[in-house]
Design a binder for these strands. Structure first.
Lengths: 344, 344
DNA sequence: ATTTAGCACTCTAAGTTCGAGAGTGCTAAA
DNA sequence: TTTAGCACTCTCGAACTTAGAGTGCTAAAT
């Protein structure tokens, strides 16, 4: 059954009010606040219908109505108004992209902070999946008599560095040679493509440098492992959640914070709700992970030239200011992809 | 007035029990649990004395006693038993120092995590004060036709890297020359010593590279600013606090988390409670910052060869397991300084 | 055929009362 | 000096009460 216009108005009113107040809404309130021009009694009848259809529910018999997940879904799909951001908000976003920043990670981190400031929800991010990133540059710098720095830069602008011990018998031109060979063999490869075949061939090419090569390649492999750990999710603004009435119960709050600490779970969640669409909304029980029953997650892909460079995820109560969150996310990801496409 | 032995026993009992239970302790409980061989009535008299002397206090007339800050102080200074760590705990600590890690930051981060796991309190860390760190190595690597990487390594092993645009007209040997000059002029200097005089002299030395030098020096100055922001405090294990009865009140929990978010305040607090002693305990109102009335902080300096490389701070309720915390901190900082002294 | 006023009914949330329990301080006996 | 005894105090939770918000149904009004 399709909803008629009056039902839609009422549904919208309930959701709008509930998002703002977190209190169940009664028929009288709607009649008073949202001038639809019908009496509370009629609204009551309509609300009973909406409940039967699954869009609303009642916490208990004599309370007002609360939106169900289906209700939010309808709202998000058909009713949600486009929220224009205020000038100051826009300015705040633009500001971080005006700074000349050349590193993906830093840029993403700043963006996440702005998102969480503007939305007042927790912002999660996972960076580019290193598995798919390609080695752009690798070399060894000497920093003093005994120490050097192994540098790796990926095509996404991610830099990793490791201080290493340099064997006494190597001079600077040895290091240059090693760097050259490493580059020649590894440049353009994704990390998973670096197989033992390639490694062996490098070793063969430079048997005389066996000692340092072992060290370097071990570090390379270590970094590969770190990648698989998928522990690269970062969250910002988590303490804001304690302001919301749904977390006034300490049990709930504890639950939330320990969820956040489970990096692997959070990564999975972000990845699964990351669909081809630019913005994706997962409401309450729509989430395959039961732990997120009472949360909604809005994700947005950072995608440049068909490459996925990361994801933003806004985690909040199902009673989330969806329209606001979506606008902010759209805005930020837009700027970000624009900036990144010139940068990479 | 000095406390006689019996009073001390009773005080110790109250503190011991209160640390374990967070409930006020009555005379009967002490007589029952801690066989001191005197009746509840006598204990009551003694407790009344201890209260008058300021070591205990009563939440309300007909409740048991609770240690005051002065009580904790006495306990910490004179009574605290040395807590031996269990073998598994020791092993856990040793494990992180067995991994070959060459970077200060990473090592400190791991150490902080172990501390917070073992203590179940929040662990704060500030790394080496970059102001005092000396530039050990600086250079520019090319990573592709248009981009390069500015690398800076300090004597503490801190590495900072920035991707930069390289002007078209520069070839690799130009970069080498620039790196050499930068090194020659800046090596061994602390960041604050890099004055505009030095910068000017570098520019004069290589007027032909004005363009890139401006970029590089701008980044250098930016990094300097970041240092001053003192926003380099990191916390681990904050959600554990929600398990303690003193944070069952959401208001308190919120308060705690927003404290944690005030980076500048936290840095100040850590720095002020960081005394020459290796381990320092600040109990409740002893803390000059009123926000920390209800907390205790145990700090431990990471000091190698008279250089301060950072601080650990354990933040917990005044009812803290001081002896455990101190042992763990001692143990970890010991290992850490040992490792670092071979590393730096 | 809808809409609405009216009303009985339900349920929660916030007070209020009350008694049990834990603990105290004082007194007087050991 | 220590301790038993006892009256007193205060908190905490349980049980009860009530105001208020909201509902659903019925019957009248449109």
């Amino acid at each position: 059954m399709m909803l008629d216009e009056r039902k839609i108005k009422i549904l919208a009113a309930v959701i709008h009010d509930y998002i703002a107040t977190a209190e169940p809404i009664g028929s009288r309130t709607i009649a008073r606040k949202y001038r639809i021009g019908i009496s509370p009694a009629t609204i009551r009848n309509e609300m009973a219908d909406l409940e039967e259809l699954g869009y609303l529910s009642q916490p208990h018999t004599s309370a007002g109505r609360v939106p169900s997940h289906k209700g939010y879904r309808f709202y998000v799909d058909f009713l949600m108004p486009v929220k224009k951001l205020s000038d100051t908000e826009q300015a705040l976003i633009r500001r971080i992209f005006n700074k000349r920043v050349n590193e993906l990670e830093q840029l993403v981190r700043e963006a996440a902070r702005v998102i969480s400031t503007l939305t007042s929800y927790t912002t999660l991010t996972i960076g580019p999946q290193l598995k798919t990133s390609r080695l752009k540059h690798i070399n060894v710098n000497r920093i003093d008599e005994t120490k050097g720095l192994l540098l790796m830069v990926t095509n996404y602008g991610t830099v990793s560095h490791n201080i290493i011990e340099i064997p006494q018998n190597l001079n600077d031109s040895d290091l240059v040679r090693i760097s050259n060979v490493l580059n020649a063999n590894l440049q353009g490869k994704t990390l998973v493509e670096i197989t033992s075949d390639i490694i062996d061939s490098i070793k063969n090419e430079m048997i005389e440098y066996d000692e340092i090569l072992n060290i370097l390649l071990e570090i390379l492999l270590e970094n590969l492992d770190d990648v698989d750990e998928s522990g690269n999710v970062v969250s910002t603004g988590s303490s804001k959640m304690l302001d919301y009435p749904e977390f006034q119960d300490v049990e709930k709050a504890k639950n939330f914070f320990s969820l956040l600490e489970q990096n692997d779970l959070m990564t999975k969640v972000l990845k699964t709700s990351m669909k081809p669409d630019s913005i994706n909304i997962t409401i309450g029980s729509e989430n395959p992970f039961i732990e997120f029953q009472d949360f909604s997650i809005v994700t947005s892909n950072i995608r440049v030239d068909d490459k996925d460079l990361g994801v933003f995820g806004i985690l909040g109560p199902t009673r989330m200011e969806y329209s606001r969150v979506v606008s902010i996310l759209e805005q930020v990801t837009n700027y970000l992809t624009k900036t990144l496409s010139t940068m990479l």
